[in-house]
Amino acid sequence: MNYLSAGKQHLEQLLALEAKCFKTDRMSRRSMKRFIEHNHAVFEVAECNGQLVGYALVLFHRGTRLARLYSIAVDPDMQGRGIASQLMKDAEKGAIEHGALYLRLEVNLHNHGAISLYKKFGYREFGLLHDYYEDHADALRMQKQIRTPQAQSMTAQVPWYRQTTDFTCGPAALMMAMGALDKQRVHTVSDELVIWREATTIFMTSGHGGCHPLGLAIAAVRRNFNAEVWINQTQPLFVDGVRDTDKKAIIAKVHEDYEQEAAALHIDVEYANITQERIADACRDGEVVLVLISTFRLDSKKAPHWVVVSGVDEKCFYLHDPDPDDKHQDPLDCQYIPIARQDFEKMSQFGSSRLRTAIILSR
Rank of each mutant, 00 (worst) to 15 (best):
S5Y: 14
G7T: 11
K8E: 13
H10S: 07
A16M: 14
A16F: 02
S28D: 05
M32A: 06
I36C: 11
V42S: 11
A46Q: 13
E47R: 14
G50T: 15
Q51Y: 02
L57Q: 05
R65D: 10
A67V: 04
A73L: 11
D75I: 15
D77E: 14
M78S: 10
R81M: 11
A84F: 02
M88K: 07
A91V: 00
A91E: 14
A91L: 04
A91C: 03
E97Q: 07
E97N: 11
L103V: 05
V107I: 06
N108Q: 09
N111R: 07
N111L: 07
H112W: 11
I115Y: 15
K120F: 00
K120C: 05
E125F: 13
L128D: 06
D131T: 08
E134S: 12
A139G: 11
K144L: 03
Q145M: 08
Q145G: 02
I146S: 13
T148Q: 10
A151R: 00
A151V: 07
A151D: 04
Q157N: 08
W160C: 01
Y161W: 12
R162H: 09
T164P: 00
T164E: 10
D166R: 03
F167R: 01
T168N: 04
P171G: 10
P171R: 11
A172D: 12
A173C: 09
M175P: 12
M175K: 12
M176W: 11
M178N: 10
A180Q: 04
Q184Y: 08
Q184E: 13
Q184T: 00
H187G: 05
V189W: 02
D191R: 07
I195S: 14
R197D: 15
E198A: 04
A199C: 10
T200S: 12
M204C: 10
H208K: 06
G210R: 06
G215N: 06
I218S: 02
I218A: 03
V221L: 09
R222E: 15
R223L: 01
N224E: 12
F225K: 11
F225Q: 12
W230E: 04
Q233K: 14
Q233N: 01
T234Y: 00
R243A: 13
I251G: 01
K253S: 08
Y258S: 02
Q260E: 11
E261Y: 01
A264F: 01
D268F: 00
D268M: 03
N273M: 04
T275N: 03
E277I: 05
E277Y: 07
A280I: 01
A282H: 09
C283N: 09
V291M: 15
L292S: 01
I293M: 08
I293N: 05
S294I: 02
P304G: 03
V308F: 09
G311T: 00
D313A: 08
K315D: 12
Y318G: 02
L319E: 08
P322C: 14
H328A: 11
Q329R: 06
P331N: 03
P331K: 01
L332Q: 08
I337C: 04
I337E: 09
P338L: 04
I339N: 08
R341T: 00
D343W: 09
F350V: 08
S353N: 12
R354G: 02
L355M: 11
R363Q: 12
